[in-house]
């Protein structure tokens, strides 16, 4: 519980830092003034129009991806899975790009195609994993299958994007995962399903916890394993897609957060869920601050910074896992 309280304190501090730091440094006093007074100067406009929406999006996306990753890792009993390594992110991205290009959809109507894409990619990954399953490490099989689906989807979306580079000029930031460049009309629209999915995660937390003991054990304890698995995957996909639709595919947040949370709190319990919900935004904000400060005044898309950091971590995990498997 102490960890949760710590994170709860860390979150507003990071949020203030995220508002204050950037290409234009805004002193804390001006930040607070801008928050309190309705009318303000140039700095206040930056705070209200630019930085605050960023904080809001970071909190929303971080919470979604963190919880989504935690649930997936719990129910699949696999520390390498996450929305990005299973191909869910890439599938949702492809569906969004396709529906923008061929159906001319925009803004609010993109959630449904994204969801369909995410579900399709997940199903494809599971099918492919079953096809290649054999005597090797099952956990690697799923990730291998997910990477293949991810490669397919992302190269297909790049191709569609390049058919008309004018129309997609504005979408480039989205495609690489940028939380500064988003349609804020999307947020209330996806907040509903995402909120429902989060509530579901807390509601069924007990059932998910039992799954940690393994499929057979859970069945012995009277859990309908298939139904809980389907439910959990459903919640995870909805959360991941809500995040993707708003800011584009941000990889590895869903992989990193559960690991940190598990180190501090173990796998089970609602406190873990809450910690994932808080840790996700914290890490995303840290990455975003790094992305804006590292090469200021240029702003790197935060998805790239996450990809860089997460990729290194993923490499380390694969190495340690295969080494252990061999010993």
């Amino acid at each position: 519980m102490r960890v949760v309280i710590l994170l709860a304190f860390l979150l507003p501090i990071l949020a203030l830092a995220q508002v204050s730091l950037g290409a234009v440094h805004i002193p804390m006093r001006s930040v607070i003034a801008a928050l309190i007074q309705p009318e303000g100067d140039f700095l206040a406009t930056i705070v209200r129009q630019q930085r605050l929406p960023r904080v809001g999006v970071a909190i929303f996306v971080g919470a979604c991806l963190g919880v989504s990753g935690l649930i997936l890792q719990k129910v699949m009993q696999n520390v390498l899975v996450s929305p990005s390594t299973l191909g869910i992110n890439a599938g949702a991205t492809l569906a969004v790009v396709l529906s923008v290009f061929f159906l001319g959809l925009d803004g609010r109507s993109l959630f449904l195609p994204g969801l369909l894409g995410g579900i399709a990619a997940m199903a494809l990954t599971l099918m492919a994993a079953r096809l290649i399953a054999g005597q090797g490490d099952r956990r690697l099989d799923v990730v291998l299958a997910g990477s293949m689906v991810g490669i397919l989807c992302s190269s297909a979306s790049t191709f569609v994007m390049t058919l008309d580079s004018d129309a997609f000029g504005t979408m480039i930031g989205w495609l690489v995962g940028d939380i500064g460049n988003f349609d804020h009309l999307m947020l209330p629209m996806v907040a509903l399903p995402a909120g429902a999915a989060l509530a579901g995660a807390f509601l069924f937390s007990r059932h998910l916890d039992v799954m940690v003991t393994g499929d057979d054990q859970a069945a012995l304890l009277g859990v309908d394993v298939r139904r809980v698995q389907a439910l959990a995957v459903g919640i995870a996909v909805v959360l991941a897609v809500s995040a993707v639709v708003v800011v584009g595919p941000i990889g590895f947040l869903g992989l990193v957060v559960p690991h940190l949370v598990k180190l501090a709190l173990g796998e089970t319990g609602r406190a873990t869920l809450l910690a994932a919900m808080l840790a996700g935004p914290c890490i995303l904000m840290l990455a975003d601050i790094a992305a804006r400060v590292a090469v200021a005044p240029r702003v790197l898309p935060v998805g790239i910074v996450m990809g860089l950091a997460g990729g290194v971590l993923f490499l380390g995990m694969v190495l340690s896992m295969t080494r252990r498997g061999r010993a």
């Binding site: 291998l144 990729g311 490499l315 694969v318 190495l319």
Partner: peptide
């Protein structure tokens, strides 16, 4: 098996970023 391919894919991710 898939071991070295996974290492390659992870390196690919970093380089892709």
């Amino acid at each position: 098996g898939g071991g070295i391919v996974m290492v390659g894919l992870a390196v690919n991710i970093v380089l892709g970023a």
